[in-house]
């Protein structure tokens, strides 16, 4: 990797992390997208997207709420992809190396969250003085420049030096260590899925996880096809439950008359 390529990786990390308009946290921060961009920088877009996609499996349902950041997926995505392409790693090994990097990266987020307070106090003084035209500089441009210092320098160094050590490191790990990397890489996506399940594996929806599991085990549907089936099943289920709820008197009477309605008239509907 040339120093220019490493610097570009660092800049991508900055753009992904600092919420610059249009690309922001929802888009470039995801390893699927920043993996593709890293791939373009290193001359192999397809490989970049594929490695990024694999790393992204771990971060499917990662939620950053109330200013917390459980893992820095952008750093994991960019460095993991860069190391995989320069070191010729497969997706699972790249994933096993990327996840610890993601944990380290959270330091950058907390540094930013802490030091950004300085600019808020500058803004307070500018409001009081009526200097409104300076506010965009204070709360948009300056914090972004500060974030640039926090992001570009460590990410560039990590990309440049990491890439030159990755090949000897992998050669050293041939045999059992590589096998362990591949087990870690195989297991990690379970974490991403489990985190997502925290939000959707609830109540009546639980059953559908097993339905999806059986459909995928027994058929050769792609995930898109399965997603469409899932959508149809969800609509069907909502329609049926709505119908049952729309006729409460009938079901209540059928369930032993606990909710018996004296005015109930079967001809009413």
């Amino acid at each position: 990797m040339s120093i220019v390529q490493a610097l570009l990786c660092g800049i991508v990390y900055w753009i992904a992390e600092a919420d610059i308009p249009f690309v922001s946290l929802w888009v470039l921060q995801r390893p699927l997208v920043c993996g593709l961009i890293t791939g373009i920088i290193l001359g192999d877009p397809v490989q970049g997207a594929v490695i990024g996609a694999s790393i992204n499996l771990v971060y499917l349902g990662f939620i950053s709420a109330g200013g917390s950041m459980p893992a820095d997926m952008a750093l994991a995505g960019i460095l993991g992809t860069a190391y995989a392409i320069t070191g010729g790693l497969d997706a699972q090994t790249a994933l096993a190396i990327a996840v610890p990097l993601g944990l380290l990266g959270t330091i950058v987020w907390y540094l930013r969250m802490t030091f950004d307070s300085i600019f808020v106090h500058m803004m307070d003084r500018q409001i009081a003085a009526g200097e409104f035209s300076k506010i965009p500089w204070t709360v948009c441009v300056l914090p972004e420049l500060m974030a640039g210092v926090f992001c570009v320098i460590p990410a560039t160094l990590a990309a440049y030096f990491g890439a030159s050590y990755i090949q000897p490191f992998i050669e050293m790990c041939q045999g059992t260590p590589m096998q362990i990397f591949s087990v870690i890489g195989g297991l990690m996506p379970a974490l991403g899925i489990a985190i997502t399940l925290q939000y959707i594996f609830k109540g009546e929806a639980r059953l559908f996880l097993f339905l999806g599991f059986m459909v995928a085990t027994c058929t050769h549907m792609t995930l898109i096809e399965q997603g469409i089936v899932g959508l149809l099943v969800a609509l069907l289920y909502t329609q049926i439950t709505d119908k049952i709820k729309a006729a409460p008197a009938v079901s209540a009477a059928g369930a032993g008359g606990a909710g018996y309605d004296p005015d109930y008239d079967p001809d009413e509907d």
């Binding site: 379970a190 997502t196 594996f201 969800a234």
Partner: peptide, 21 residues
């Protein structure tokens, strides 16, 4: 709740396709 049903179906498929153990 509708999105959760669809999401669970997709996650079920994801387990089969991408958790390799």
């Amino acid at each position: 709740s509708a999105a959760s049903i669809m999401g669970c179906m997709v996650m079920g498929g994801l387990i089969v396709n991408y958790v390799g153990i």
